[in-house]
Nucleic acid binder design. Structure first.
Lengths: 132, 132
DNA sequence: GCATATGTTATACTACAACTATAACAGATA
DNA sequence: TATCTGTTATAGTTGTAGTATAACATATGC
């Protein structure tokens, strides 16, 4: 699992970390129960501070994607991923809305949009072997 | 055109403003060439500072959604909306990617996802009369 | 011409988020 | 006992978001 960070991006490092780990799980690159690097180890690897990694880990834990054991370290949630809850659907809705609005503004057809979604979906699912 | 702001949101006010104006254009609520309130007027209406509105307007201008005339004020770009450029497609791709990855993680099927997209699309398009 | 409304620019300030830098603590393991 | 783990505390820097005033430049209406 290789982490790619863009230090010039306006997306915070801890958010990039969260996204990459979630995508890693989605593509099956990270299996359920699999261990993640320690906060110090990962921080040192990617050249950021311990607290930046810690923040990403704690947010992922809070959302149910990982477990943090006091001394064993961090593992991908072994009991399965968080469900599609109403709260999550609302979050997704609010994320999608401005994106779709801009697409409509620019004259992108619904079919083009759906095709783009399918394309991204395929890229995530079939670069690994799909989700566990 | 009613602006709804969430002061508690972690989304910056100027971003919320941009999103709402873009969505207003998408639903046809704001027509091409239509005038927008002055920076001072809108700022006073929604109870924020002049510079916050100014920032939103200038970013919208920079992306080609509006025109700003020195004295006439601000109008929705009359010559048509910005196109679907390669840069825009890349931006959209980077926006969609983490959203879709999380959906996959949570076990949402591609069909559910596409259905949600269509739902949002429909809500935007048919609450107004669709794009001009 | 003059007042007024427009966007623009400048300055300064507060508040907060992101990130870094150290240091120390607590618990489990070799 | 030494070491590795996550955790917590403190503090500092940097940048963004937002506010508060003030002034400037230009076009419009009376």
């Amino acid at each position: 699992m290789i982490i790619q960070l863009d230090m010039q991006s306006d997306v915070p490092i801890y958010t990039q970390l969260m996204n990459q780990i979630i995508e890693g799980i989605a593509r099956g690159d990270l299996k359920l129960g699999e261990a993640l690097p320690s906060v110090r180890g990962l921080a040192s690897d990617i050249g950021v501070n311990l607290h930046t990694v810690n923040k990403a880990y704690n947010l992922l834990k809070q959302e149910g994607f990982i477990q943090i054991h006091r001394q064993k370290g961090v593992v991908i949630q072994p009991d399965g991923m968080p469900e599609v809850t109403p709260e999550y659907e609302l979050k997704q809705y609010n994320q999608l809305r401005p994106i779709i609005a801009e697409a409509i503004c620019r004259g992108m057809t619904k079919e083009q949009l759906l095709q783009n979604i399918e394309q991204v979906h395929k890229e995530i699912m079939y670069n690994g072997k799909g989700n566990a």
